[in-house]
Design a protein around this nucleic acid. Structure first.
Length: 136
DNA sequence: CGTTTGACTACGC
DNA sequence: CGCGTAGCCAAAC
């Protein structure tokens, strides 16, 4: 079963990845989760189900004042994961629309248009940002 | 210190 | 499409 061997590092890795989502693009909790290698040999199918929760947990703890584009992370359905109408949801929609992300009449984005391709692994590795390196 | 609570997702109906 | 469920545990109460 997947669980972060070291939650602190796992969270930091999530933030590292989120920081690289460019303006006008979005990623999902699950997508980000799959970018982080399971260090405990967890079955990939289990990863799909369990890891996203941890990404969500990481996002909940996103440090403020570090310019982390938290709003560019949405759920696999292409919608923001806050209750519709909540201040946080409104804020997230606002921030995204401000950078050109469009939502259809159901509040969904088109991943074909604004989906993020993923992080630059070579860049991450060359800067020792990946595997997990905690903020200090 | 015990209980509740999540910024999730795939899958089955 | 929508709705319910399992899987799972660090934090926040």
């Amino acid at each position: 079963m997947f669980n972060p061997p070291n939650p602190k590092k796992f969270f930091a890795t999530v933030w590292n990845i989120v920081e690289q989502i460019p303006e006008g693009k979005v990623s999902t909790y699950g997508q980000i989760a799959t970018m982080i290698p399971a260090s405990d040999g967890t079955d990939p199918d289990q990863m799909k189900r369990l890891a996203p929760r941890w990404v969500g947990t990481a996002m909940r703890k996103t440090p403020k004042g570090q310019n982390i584009p938290w709003h560019r992370v949405i759920n696999s359905q292409g919608k923001v994961s806050f209750p519709e109408g909540s201040p946080q949801a409104e804020e997230q929609y606002r921030l995204l629309e401000m950078e050109g992300v469009e939502f259809d009449n159901k509040g969904k984005v088109d991943f074909d248009i604004v989906g993020w391709e993923g992080p630059n692994y070579e860049y991450l590795e060359s800067n020792d940002l990946f595997p997990p390196k905690p903020f200090t």
